[in-house]
Amino acid sequence: MQTPILQVTGYEKYFALHEQNKLIPSAHQVNLTVHAGQLVALIGPTGAGKSSVLKGIYRTYLPSSGRILYRDAAGHEIDLAQANEHQVLALRRHEIGFVTQFLHCLPRQATLDVVANPLLAVGGGRKEARLRAGELLSAMNLPERLWSVSPATFSGGERQRVNLARGLITRPRLLLLDEPTASLDPATAERVIELIENLKAGGTAVLAIFHHPETTRRLADQVVELAAPPAIEEILKEIA
């Protein structure tokens, strides 16, 4: 068995809300392992901390405890929970992609450029980047007449496709997906599933949350079930 790309052990996340003097648990004792070319799906009830795990790995959340060992392209092992900001930024730019349900991008940029930009940032030529962006957008059935428009005016499904294309364009080594097909029609969802399979075949490790159990069944090589974290009193008792 080859060494995993990602190994999460004992990940926990609590939010300390100073204003209300409260500690809110978000994820509790999460363990998982992802290998290259594999898709691991996170399942569990709402509030189990599925998104919290993805955000912790991407460092949008600062993990409260646990280790997030990532093996980079050069073979070095980095604990993402401890990595410095510049290490994280470099990995985000070159190796780790994150596709959320929401699109955060420049409000006044043409869709094609929104998608092409991550490729430009890692040193691609503008022409090739736009070409590749176009390929991805057509693969996801986004009509060409929308390419020159800003995604700010798009429907939920359209935005999601732009977001996906943007996340996939650099062919990341580790891709984090948070309900990427949630608001897509069945036909488009099918195209997206094909794209993800394609990426897997290319060696990308994927950690995903899917809205439909059917998608999980089709794509997941492994399923990790999360339970809602216990009440904070329980956790505090545990620590004590």
């Binding site: 809300l17 100073h18 460092r59 949008t60 959340y61 600062l62 900001e85 994280v88």
Partner: peptide, 16 residues
């Protein structure tokens, strides 16, 4: 910290 982290997971009471 990272900008998205500060905006989504602010640590200090003032930032929150």
């Amino acid at each position: 910290g990272l900008t998205d982290q500060i905006l989504e997971d602010p640590q200090h009471a003032y930032t929150q």
